[in-house]
């Protein structure tokens, strides 16, 4: 009897261990995991600081070809909707900061860039590939997960951004 109980407890513990390995990623309708990361000037920014604004969050790396195409789009969205409550935040996952700096020299960004060489934020969001973008509403809920970036995606992404801004009517 005792061994049975012990066995059951151990089994439960083991299943717990196995399940712990597969923590959930950021999904549509779920709250976006928080992060605190350094900006280019050294000041840190966390997602909770951006409550009240619609956030277009993008994971990118210097070695990722489609990321290069997504930067002009994000610059455009920042220019067009920045004053209407959108905040474009791009998290760099390069291990070497110099790789990121070189990319930014060739592909300038007018929006917020955060640096995550340790990969803490992608560990929480678990993007399937680079780049992956997330649209987060003013309450911090994930509205959209968009893997990859192609020129053909522009219209659809802009429509989703516009929708999110109209829905919440966030403070400017």
């Amino acid at each position: 009897m005792n061994t049975h109980r012990l066995g059951r407890a151990l089994l439960a513990g083991l299943t717990g261990l196995l399940l712990a390995g597969s923590a959930q990623a950021a999904e549509v309708g779920k709250p976006a995991p928080d992060f605190t990361l350094a900006q280019k000037d050294g000041n840190s920014l966390s997602l909770t600081q951006l409550r009240g604004r619609v956030v277009y969050l993008d994971f990118w790396a210097s070695w990722c070809a489609p990321c290069r195409q997504s930067f002009p789009f994000m610059n455009e969205m920042h220019a067009k909707y920045g004053k209407k409550g959108l905040r474009v935040v791009a998290i760099n996952v390069d291990e070497q900061r110099s790789d990121a700096e070189q990319f930014l020299k060739q592909t300038p960004a007018q929006f917020t860039v955060l640096f995550d060489p340790a990969g803490k934020a992608p560990e929480q969001y678990k993007p399937d590939g680079m780049p992956t973008s997330y649209l987060i509403d003013e309450h911090g809920k994930v509205l959209m997960v968009h893997p990859s970036f192609k020129e053909a995606d522009r219209a659809e992404l802009e429509r989703r951004i516009g929708e999110a801004l109209a829905q919440g009517n966030p403070a400017p």
Binding site: A61, P66, M130, P131, K150
Partner: peptide, 10 residues
């Protein structure tokens, strides 16, 4: 290669 990011795009 993995320059495309491994997302099946590009």
């Amino acid at each position: 290669g993995v320059g495309g990011g491994g997302c099946g795009c590009n």
